[in-house]
Amino acid sequence: MLHSKAERAYLQQGFDAGLRSDGRGCHDWRPVEVALAQLPQASGSARCCVGGTEVLVSVKAEVRTPTEEAPGCGGIQLAVEVSPCAGLRLQGRGDEELGAELTRALERCLLSQANGAGGCLDLSALCIVAGKSCWVLCVDALVLSADGCVLDALSIAAKAALADTRIPLVEVTQADEDGDAELELDDDPTHAARLDTARVPVLVTVSQVGAALAVDLNAEEGACAGAALEVAVDARGRLCGATMRAHSAPLHPSSLQEMLGLAQRLGPRLLRELDRQIGQSAAAASVAMQE
């Protein structure tokens, strides 16, 4: 998007003064809106809006054979797609490249190793028969509209969708002496296992604009930002990972400390509110289901 030098200078001065163009301070988010259970076909789904940014995440649980490296674990597969009408005006295959970039960033947040072990979710809980079958969670995200802060919105929606996920209960019956187990799925939606998402972190992108540090930059502000750091923080404020955004400006080590500290202060606040809302809406849903 085109911006004049004067507009960029005005935005820059706003960050210096601690008052942005829409009335926010440097460390304020735009209103974050989360809605659960948006897709009836998915095992779990969530839609998240942060200002003009809107993302939709679905989780689908599939029964597959576990990998040889981790026979006792299930898995997670991530894929982010950027809608061509998200308003980014990318050229050529730019939206695919951006989608791949966001996928990797989200993978770094949710999975710690290439095989998915040791991440924020207990993958051994997804195992059905060790070495034979397990649940694989396919997390598919779609960026519907992008107005800055896309990655943060994706991580919020992913956490909400995982919290919303219902995995059918499985009964394993030993069928024959070959050891091939037969699986029987419980199709009662009220009897379903839930994932423990308490340790799932959220990504907070801290950007440097001039001398100031800020979160949740909209598209216009993003155009005048310098270095950006994507920090994964969990509910206790522990760091789960940090990555320099691709094509980001170089960063001084002293400001790195400051950026991590800011993410550690702001992340838990965001997560507390998110967890409270997820809890409320899950309680409301279970009441509705019982009735």
Partner: peptide, 20 residues
């Protein structure tokens, strides 16, 4: 809605509750 200056807890809204 939040006031500028003091960072406050970000407000998360479950859809349909007084967004305007």
């Amino acid at each position: 809605m939040q006031l500028a200056g003091q960072p406050q807890a970000p407000n998360i809204i479950i859809r349909g509750s007084g967004s305007s």
